[in-house]
């Protein structure tokens, strides 16, 4: 089985392999197989549509972690221009599971900060699987405060299993690093838009996710704990992850219903990884629209509306 395909994507993968095979055969023979190829292509589209119209929250959780899904640096390449990556928290280290720096969005200077996962094994380790340590959050904070000083809007991209649970991380104050970011972000005098592009893993995600607008890609998730973690605590076994995913309501659509996400950005058929350029274009349009909206507000209104948003309470009555 191809590790770059999830189990429910396998029928699509098989079909595409067949198309590719036929195409190769077609190249070195005179037989006209164009009709057959277009028939199979059509079949592939219908198959993808039917599979993707019936995804469970657990399927979506796995899509959010898809090994070929675009990561922050991919979007930096496709959506932004002139990105200058800045490094280090100025206290201890440069945490490569968070990347950031100034860039341009259609000419407008912005500060981009995002979790970064690695693609291949060595890269995954270097990026610590997208799980930041305190220095990652402190680097992010440094960049956010810089953005505030230079009146640049902040765009964050969320894609992490969670903050790293390690000995050193605890020694250097993982809790404090997260808590401090939450506090400072609540009062930044510059617009903040957060977009969940993959996994929104708990406090480790929120630590760069306190914002004026929250967008979620269609197949991204945002949760207080991973479905596996929730299952192992409440069901006493990680095997109930699918049930936990269902119960917690971790999908973009569910968060939109709960009024926590402002927009769900639809993904191309088959998910963002099937057509990265397409999703990048949609994301860019949404970010521009969001910034136009937020930049029209006075700083005072911006900050007070964010505070309202953070502290509001639904009594359910």
């Amino acid at each position: 089985m191809n590790p770059n395909y999830l189990d429910f994507e396998q029928p699509i993968a098989d079909l595409e392999a067949k198309i590719e095979e036929l195409r190769l055969v077609g190249n070195d023979s005179d037989i006209n197989i164009t009709d057959e190829i277009s028939r199979l292509k059509h079949k592939s589209v219908t198959l993808t549509e039917s599979i993707f119209s019936n995804l469970t929250p657990w399927d979506i959780a796995r899509l959010a972690r898809h090994p070929r899904r675009p990561y922050t640096l991919d979007y930096l390449e496709m959506v932004f221009d002139d990105f200058d990556e800045l490094h280090g928290d100025r206290h201890y280290a440069d945490d490569l599971s968070i990347v950031g720096g100034p860039a341009r969005l259609d000419g407008r200077p912005v500060m981009v900060i995002g979790h970064q996962k690695g693609r291949e094994v060595r890269d995954k380790v270097k990026r610590n699987f997208g799980m930041p340590r305190p220095e990652g959050y402190r680097k992010a904070l440094r960049l956010m405060e810089m953005a505030e000083r230079f009146r640049m809007p902040i765009l964050t991209f969320i894609d992490t299993p969670g903050a790293y649970p390690g000995i050193g991380a605890e020694e250097r104050g993982q809790s404090e690093a997260i808590a401090y970011n939450l506090a400072v972000m609540s009062r930044l005098k510059t617009p903040v838009i957060s977009t969940v592009i993959g996994e929104g893993g708990s406090g480790g995600a929120l630590a760069i996710g306190v914002c004026d607008r929250l967008y979620m890609l269609q197949y991204s998730t945002y949760a207080v704990i991973s479905p596996e973690g929730c299952a192992s605590i409440l069901w006493k076994s990680a095997e109930h992850a699918a049930q936990a995913a269902e119960a917690m309501g971790i999908t973009a659509d569910r968060l939109k219903e709960l009024k926590l996400a402002d927009k769900v950005i639809p993904e191309p058929m088959g998910g963002a990884h099937r057509a990265p350029k397409e999703i990048a274009k949609a994301l860019k349009e949404q970010l521009k629209a969001g910034l136009d909206e937020l930049c029209a507000l006075s700083t005072e209104d911006l900050v007070s509306q964010r505070y309202e948003r953070l502290t509001s309470y639904d009594t359910g009555r």
């Binding site: 997260i178 945002y222 207080v224 953070l310």
Partner: peptide, 11 residues
């Protein structure tokens, strides 16, 4: 309370 409880951290 899933995601709603996460938001209490920011609140």
């Amino acid at each position: 309370e899933a995601i709603l409880s996460l938001m209490q951290m920011a609140k």
